[in-house]
Every structure is written in structure tokens, then in C-alpha cells.
């Protein structure tokens, strides 16, 4: 299973896309193939490798759906 730096509490997501515009690496998008319990297309991480764990998404999210992790330091140093 590949490493993913963010956890998305999908069922709290309302698909407002504020994180999508805030993301400097453009690696967030709504998953139009799915609908969550609230009736919205939830956001998903499209390219885990490109994510820098900057947490901009978490800071703009009105619904606090993001938990953000950074890769271990040794991994970054490699």
C-alpha cells in the first residue's frame, strides 16, 4: 500500500472545493464517481507522492476533514 500523507474524513466533506484551490501542488480534486452520506462528492488526494504535507487544505477546510502527516525525516533525507 503506498504512503499517503493525508487522512480525509470523507463523510464530513461537503465538496466546497476550497481546499482544491488552496492546494499549491494541485493534488486535491472532488471524486465525482462517489457520493458521501451528506450527498456530496468528497474530496480526494490524486497524487500522494506530490503532496508536501503543507496542510494548507486543513487550514482552509470549514469542516475539519483533514488529518495531515509528514513523511519520516529519514525518508525525506534520502
Amino acid at each position: 500500500m503506498p504512503w499517503a500523507p493525508i487522512v480525509i474524513a470523507e463523510d464530513h466533506c461537503k465538496g466546497c472545493e476550497l481546499c482544491v484551490t488552496a492546494c499549491p501542488k494541485h493534488v486535491l480534486a472532488l471524486d465525482r464517481s462517489r457520493i458521501n452520506v451528506l450527498g456530496y462528492h468528497p474530496v480526494e488526494l490524486t497524487d500522494a507522492a506530490a503532496c508536501t504535507s503543507c496542510a494548507f487544505c486543513a487550514r482552509v477546510c470549514p469542516d475539519a476533514v483533514f488529518t495531515v502527516w509528514a513523511a519520516p525525516r529519514e525518508e525525506l533525507q534520502r
Binding site: 504512503w3 500522494a48 486543513a58 475539519a64 483533514f66 495531515v68 513523511a71 519520516p72 525518508e75
Partner: peptide, 26 residues
């Protein structure tokens, strides 16, 4: 695409030193 997403209780496998950058306040 299936991604492994670490929960606060279980950091990513093989990445026990993964640092929590942001979590929803309790």
C-alpha cells in the same frame, strides 16, 4: 486508487516516525 491513510492511532506502516502535522482538535 487505494491509498493507505494513517489514522492518528496507527501511523503509516514502515513510517513509524511519521510526524503529525495537523489533526482536528479534540
Amino acid at each position: 486508487m487505494t491509498l493507505h491513510t494513517p489514522g492518528p492511532e496507527s501511523p503509516a506502516p514502515g513510517a513509524s516516525a511519521a510526524r503529525l502535522i495537523y489533526a482536528r482538535p479534540e
